[in-house]
Every structure is written in C-alpha cells, then in structure tokens.
Design a protein around this nucleic acid. Structure first.
Lengths: 198, 198, 198, 198
DNA sequence: GATGAATGAGTTTTCATTCAT
DNA sequence: CATGAATGAAAACTCATTCAT
C-alpha cells in the first residue's frame, strides 16, 4: 500500500474531478482510473479499496487545511479574531476549489454510515479547533460563560456548513467569502437587536 | 396509484422501520414489503417507484409536522416565542419517534441528488416558516434589522439540524427537547457575553 | 367460460386495437380490459388465459374469413380463377382492416412457439383451401402435374404472406389489392419470359 | 466493447445453442454465459446488452453467408444459374447447422420490433443479391421484362423462407437441400403446365 | 355475472475487486 | 510496479392471474 508517489496524488485529484463532474453514484473506480491515466488495478496498489480512496480524498484535502487553520489561529490573539479567521479560511478554501466544494458539501454525504463515520474522524480535529476558540473566548470573558460549549460548537459548525452547502446548491452563484464577516457577526451577537459588538 | 388506504400507511411506517433498523442501502423493497406484510408488487400499487416511496415517507411525516408547526406559531404573539416554539416542536418531533429521527437525520441524506432535491421541496415550506419569524422579529424590532435574513435562516436551520444530527449519532443518549431552550437562547443572543438573557 | 355475448366481442376487438396501437409486448391484459371497458377479471370469464384470448383473436378474425373464402371458391369453376380469388380476398381482408393486418402480419408473430402452434392449427384450414386449388389445377391439366404440391403450397402462401408483410411494414403506403393480379400471374407463370400470359 | 477474441465467438455459439435448445424466451443471459463457460459479466465486455448479442448472432452467422453467396454468384454466368445457386446455398446453410436454422427461422422472430428492425438491416443485403439476379435475368431476356421486381423478390424470398420454416417446424425430418432444385424450377416456371425450361 | 385489489415469481445489468502476465 | 480482462453477487419492477365481495 503505497501512500505516496506522483500517482497517489493523481488518483486523489482524479477522484475529486470525477465526483464533482459526474456525482458520487456515477464515479466508478474505472472512471477515476481513466481520469488519472492509470489502470484500474493500480488504484488498489495505493488504496485498500474504494472507501479508503474516498476517505483519503477527504483526508488529504481537509487534513492539510485543518493544520493550516490551526497554525493561522495560533497567530491571532483573541477568540473573536480566531473565530473570524476560521470562518474566513473555511469559506475561502471552498471558494478556491469549486470542485472540492461540490465533493465535500454534496457528493461525499450520500455515502454509507461507515464512510461518514471515518470522515467524521477527520472532522473531529476541526471541531477541536472550534472548541479551543470557544474555551478561549469564555476565559477572555467575551463569550457567555454559562453556555453549553457542545451546543455552541454545533451552532458554529452547523451555520458554516449550512451556509456553504446552500452556496454550492446555488451553483456558487454568489460570493461565499464575503459572507464570512456577517456570519461571524451573527454567531457572536445572535439574531437580537443589541448594540453591535463585533 | 392509490395514495390512501390502510396499506398506504402500513407501507410508509414499514419503510421508516426498515430504514432505521437496517440503513438506507440495506432497505430493499422486498424487505419493506415483508415488514408491511404486503406483497412486493403491492408497493407499486401505491407508489410509482422506490424513490417515490422514500419521498412520500418524508412528505407524510414532515408535511403534517410543518402544518402543525405553522398553526402553533400563529397562536404565538412574538417572534421570540415563535422561534422558541419552532425549535421545541422540531426537537420533540424527533424525540417522539426515534426511528424517524434516524431516517431523516442520517439515512435519507445518503440518497442521490434527485431524491434530495424532492426532499428539499418539502423542506422549503419549513424554511418559509423561519423566514416569517425572522421578518416578524425585525418588524417588532427585537431582531437586528440589518441582518441578512438568508444567512439568519441558514444559521437557525443549520444549528437545529446539526444539533439533532449529533443527538442521533450519539444514539439519542441525552435529552434533545431539553436543548431547545439553550439553543434558542444562543441563536437569539449569540456567543457573546451579553448582560441580557431573553 | 362464456364464449359468446357482447363482452366477448368487445374484448376481441379491444385486443386487436390495443395490439395494433401499442405492439404485442405492450399489450397487457389490463390495457385490453380498459379498452374494452370491462374489469381485468372479466376477461377470465370469457377466456382461459391470455394465450387463449390471442388465439381467439386470430380464430375469430381468420376463421370466418377462411369460411367465406371457401364458399367464394366453390362458386368459381377453374383453378386459375380460384387462385386469383384467394389472393384477392386475402389482400382485401387485410386492406379492409389495417389494425388487423398489423396484428396478424407483425405482432402475433413475436409470440412463443406454443401460441404460434395453435395459430398454425387455424391456418391449416386455409392451407387446405390452397391444396384443393392445386389438386384441381393439376386435374384440369393447367398446373404442372409433376410438381411437389407441398412446395407449391409453400410458394403460394409464402409469396402472399411476404407480400402482405412488406406492405404492412411499409405502413400500408401502397395499394395491396392491386397487387393481387400481378402476384397471381407471377405464381402461375413464374419468373420466366413465357409467351403466354394467363 | 471488444468485438473480437476467442470468447466473442464462444459466446455467439453458446447463444445459438441455448436458444435452439431452450427457445428464445428461456434463453437468459446467465444460461448463455454458463454454456460459454464465462461469467455473466463477461458477456457485457463483448456486447452492449442482450439485444446487441442477439443482433450480433444473426449478423455473424448471416453476414459471412451473404458475402460468400455474393462471391459465389459472381462466378455464375447466367441469372438462372445464380438463382439456383442462391437457393441451394441458402438451404445448405440451414442444413449444415440445424441449431442455427431453429434460431433464425423460429426463435429470432419472436422478438420485439426494434430487434427485428436491426435484423432486417442485415437481411437487406441479402435481398439486394436477389434484386441483382432479377435485373440480370431481365436483361438476359430469360425473365419476364414486365414483372414487378419488388413482387418477384418477395416471391423468391417468401418461398425460400416459408419452405425453410416448414422444414424446421417438421423437425428437419426431410432433406431440405434436395428441395432447392424443385423450388428453383417452380419459381422460374410457376405453377402452370408449360413445357419445362429450367 | 362482474369487479379490481392483491399477489409474487423471475431477469438483466453494473461494478468493485482480483490476479496472471 | 503496472496492467486490464475477467469475475459474479445483488435488486427493482412487471404483469398474468386469483378470489373475496
């Protein structure tokens, strides 16, 4: 099981392309192999099976993103800034690669529970970043110290994810990164009409 | 295509049961038929095809829920109360039928885009309810009058949905309806440490 | 098993219509029943099963034709005249009812061997008429007395049938009865350049 | 879609065998695959679908026959000889492969119109051979120059086909090739009692 | 007699994976 | 390392026929 090499990357990229173009259910291994200019059997030299390939797609693309995000966050001093950065980077990641956005927001969701469980494993590292921000904000005193952090995390992730998914389902018709700031503001201040804080 | 009768309901309920128990991809028509104690062919007297059955499952269960919710909201006088009611009813619907919650939060998502598009049609009527609440709250002056209502709707739905999905993925281990109040509070006031608590 | 009554005829006619319009493989019992304005089950009061219905269609339509032809032939005095009459009546039968021509020449052939065997039974009575003409012509001395009558019968029937089938496959675009005379001439004199013309 | 290779031929031959033995409607793909000693899926490496396989059966068997016949005819100098050769080769083809004769004369006819249309395409090349003979005979002056060549072609083909079909339906009980000469004689001279010419 | 709701057997085709070369 | 031909399991849907009313 080679996990590196030029063909490994070619297969990953081919998978994103094919899934984005033809949809998850029309993305046969043979189609991905042809797009990657390798033989069907070659895919099995690099991936245990199709599920492993799909998890790897998510892992490769999101894994490095999560790391970069973590690094970026460390450079910000306040929780408010960190949350803003997280949303901004998330939206820009998807805007920078529309194919990837289709794959992660739409296609990779129509998979069986086992695959989504493994994807969930990767996502956990992202959710940890959110938890850290929340904790920090509460320590700083800028976030409500009585809130349920699990709920807060679900609100943050659910809002970002729903916003991104709607953008993809609307064929990327509007500018997603521009929404980072208002989304951030809304998460921090909620719906209510209070004196602005952000 | 008979759309009523005792067998119609029996098949709908059997589909929910089978999908919740065995998962979407292991829910063959013959399995649903057996669970409903009808012949395979009988299903096709009531539904055009398997996709039609699945859409109908969602429609039957969510359609009446959306109506009931709309009626309930009309009895509440403020946007705050209405939002609170919406979240509460949503969580109680899922808590009242754990099988249904598995089906709507997990299994019915791993379907092709065509099916999800039809499910989306039904959901739109739910999102309209949210929009009405938002508009009302802005008119009342309790919601921020400068906010992007589309984003606000995505925050509300995304948060509710993510919260519900996490609850299902944690095997309904904790009490979901109890989360309605804190979720509502968080949506209204955001993460920030405001003095006031709605 | 009622073999008479107004519904019997209505079902037979409905079958011809439906088969001509939708083709053999799209002619379900329920479609024929609807066209005949009876319930599906009613068909089974008049016919043992679908095969029995189809054989009856052929029988009803061809049976009386064969009888009429036999009577007509008896009024002709020479074998030449009789052959001419046979071809003429055959072509006019099909021309008088285009739906029937589609059913007998195209649709009823794509059936299983059992059904075609039963249709063959009906046809035998027609072939007997041909045999009688041949025998008579040989006795009269106008037909070649050394010929194999089975072959002659196959030539006559094969030619008539092939001519009719081609006409149907060409959407009845030309006048079939007009071909009776030249077909007759060709069967009697063959391809060769004889001086005499019957 | 590989169209050559040893398995291609094995599948074609297996199809003829299975159809001849079990009949068209009892010739499932899996039965043909088993007979050919390949997996079911292998058939779809060589044929687009079952219909494509069946058309290919006809094409492979009749296509080369039509070519051989065309070549043979070119070596004959007179239309009379050519017609004689055509009939003779046709009957010998069927007599050489009884299984094939069952398939082409009986089983392949009980197919839907789409399939028969494609088979008709192949047959057209055979009918062209007949047309050439007819034209030549008319030019030579041995065939009636006033005859309708389309009718003549239908008489020739209808007679040959009907003769062959009857032979198959009589379980090949008599010698078909021996009938070539009398059939030829009858086509040329017709039924009438003229001085022999052939 | 007439109805029509219900039955349930039966088949083509796809595609992830293997393994001989 | 790489290939790609071959494998074979698995499932939605149709429709002739029945029988309780």
């Amino acid at each position: 099981m080679k996990r590196k090499g030029p063909k490994y990357d070619k297969i990953i990229d081919a998978a994103v392309s094919v899934i984005a173009m033809h949809g998850y259910h029309q993305s046969q291994v043979s189609k991905i192999a042809k797009q990657a200019s390798v033989a069907d059997g070659t895919i099995y030299l690099y991936f245990k099976n199709k599920e492993d390939l799909l998890v790897s797609v998510f892992n490769e693309k999101m894994g490095s993103f999560i790391e970069r995000t973590g690094e970026e966050l460390r450079e910000k001093s306040s929780a408010i800034e960190k949350l803003s950065t997280l949303i901004d980077m998330h939206f820009r990641l998807l805007d920078d690669d529309h194919e990837l956005s289709i794959v992660t927001q739409l296609e990779l969701r129509q998979t069986n529970r086992a695959l989504r469980a493994k994807i969930g494993e990767v996502l956990k590292r992202y959710l940890v970043l959110i938890d850290i921000i929340l904790q920090e904000g509460m320590n700083e005193g800028v976030f409500n110290q009585h809130m349920d952090t699990r709920l807060a995390r679900q609100m943050i992730f659910g809002t970002i994810d729903e916003t991104a998914t709607n953008w993809v389902m609307n064929d990327h018709r509007y500018n997603l990164p521009k929404l980072a700031q208002p989304v951030h503001q809304m998460l921090v201040n909620g719906l209510s009409n209070n004196a602005d804080v952000s």
